[in-house]
Simulated scan of single mutants.
Amino acid sequence: MHNRSILNNLGQVVALGGDHGLGRVMSSLAFLNSQLTGIVTTTDDGGSTGRIRRSEGGIAWGDTRNCLNQLITEPSIASTMFEYRFAGNGELGGHNLGNLMLKSLDHLSVRPLDAINLIRSLLKVEAHLIPMSEQPADLLAIDLMGNKIYGEVNVDQLTSLPQKLMLSPQVSCTPEALDAIHNADLIIIGPGSFLTSLMPLFLMNDLTQALQACRAAIIYIGNLGKELNQPAANMQLTEKIAMIEKHIGQQKIDAVIAVPVTDTSSLPDRIVLQRKLADQNVFYRHDRDLLRQAIEDMAHKIHQLKPFNLSPYPNAS
């Protein structure tokens, strides 16, 4: 187990995102147990998730399922079932049983959040996971020609940066997510597909207002390599941060964690930490231990410049 760290001494740590990126952050900080909350993007319309949405409606479950998969520490029959994916070309082929379990519990529950909490207790996951909204919405882009491009899958195919991104319909943020942001000491944004996993969160007005008002230190974690999405791949880190802060309405990101090749020269007013973070076996994924250590070290740096308003740390140096 990790030695007691500066992160343990924070009241609440909140991570925002989707995709595999949020799962990596959540699993690298899983030792925080109930002090950790993930706010998950729910606009995915591809793969098993997309098929379930087209058939049954509702929010996208895939990113939540991915986070839960990465947070499972006690293997069990339930966890094996949750991670199972059907093979073949039949009706069930390609479907992930975890998505179907979440969807079925959603039908049986009053709220999607209840379904997540039931699965969390079944899988013995301590960290909290909250969907960004409990109302179904899709990502909508307006391209350079003024055309409306509906859905994450189609937005991913764009060859140039859209002139506008929005949610269709415009939905409100889950109240518990707003509470988590309000009570957070540290907020982590990213890594993940910028336009489709991160930006949907900042298209909700109540979420950006909560970020504007929050007292937490905010860290942005950059991706390891170039994104598959061409417009996002062409964006500099500074452009991504500028786009997020334009939606928040003010400069709020205090710190940036990035790999050594990233150009951070235009970030003079942020705390920057650059180091190798890639998993040795899967070069395009963050190594959990290296990521945890980077977040830990960044928390120390932030504390030295802008102390967290907490009881004294036994091991802050």
Rank of each mutant, 00 (worst) to 15 (best):
M1H: 07
H2G: 00
R4I: 09
L7R: 04
N8T: 13
N9M: 08
Q12L: 08
V13D: 07
A15V: 00
L16C: 02
G17F: 00
G18V: 03
G18I: 05
D19K: 04
G21M: 10
G23I: 00
R24V: 14
V25Q: 06
V25M: 01
S27T: 13
N33R: 14
N33V: 12
N33I: 11
Q35E: 11
G38V: 07
I39Y: 00
T41S: 13
D44A: 13
R54K: 09
I59Y: 04
I59C: 08
A60S: 05
D63F: 12
N66T: 10
N66R: 14
C67L: 04
L71A: 06
I72P: 02
S79C: 04
F82H: 08
E83P: 06
Y84D: 01
F86H: 05
A87E: 06
G88R: 15
L92T: 07
G93L: 08
L100G: 01
M101T: 13
K103Q: 15
K103W: 10
K103P: 04
S104V: 11
L105R: 05
P112W: 11
D114P: 08
I119D: 01
I119L: 06
E126P: 15
E134L: 03
Q135E: 12
P136N: 04
P136Q: 10
P136K: 06
D143R: 02
M145A: 14
M145F: 14
I149P: 00
G151F: 02
E152G: 06
V153N: 12
Q157F: 15
T159L: 12
T159P: 06
M166S: 03
S168E: 02
V171A: 09
P175A: 11
P175I: 08
A177P: 03
N183E: 08
D185A: 03
L186T: 05
I187F: 04
I188M: 04
I189N: 00
F202M: 07
D206M: 01
T208H: 04
A213G: 10
C214F: 03
C214M: 08
I219V: 13
Y220G: 00
L224T: 08
L224I: 09
Q230N: 15
P231K: 11
A232R: 05
A232C: 08
Q236Y: 09
Q236P: 01
K246T: 14
H247S: 01
Q250P: 02
Q250R: 15
K252L: 12
I253F: 10
V256W: 05
V259W: 02
V259L: 05
T262W: 01
S265C: 15
P268Y: 10
I271K: 09
L273E: 04
R275Q: 03
L277D: 00
A278Y: 03
N281D: 12
F283I: 05
D287T: 00
D289C: 01
R292Y: 06
H300A: 07
K301F: 10
I302E: 04
L305F: 13
F308L: 11
L310R: 12
L310A: 09
S311Y: 07
S311M: 13
N315R: 11
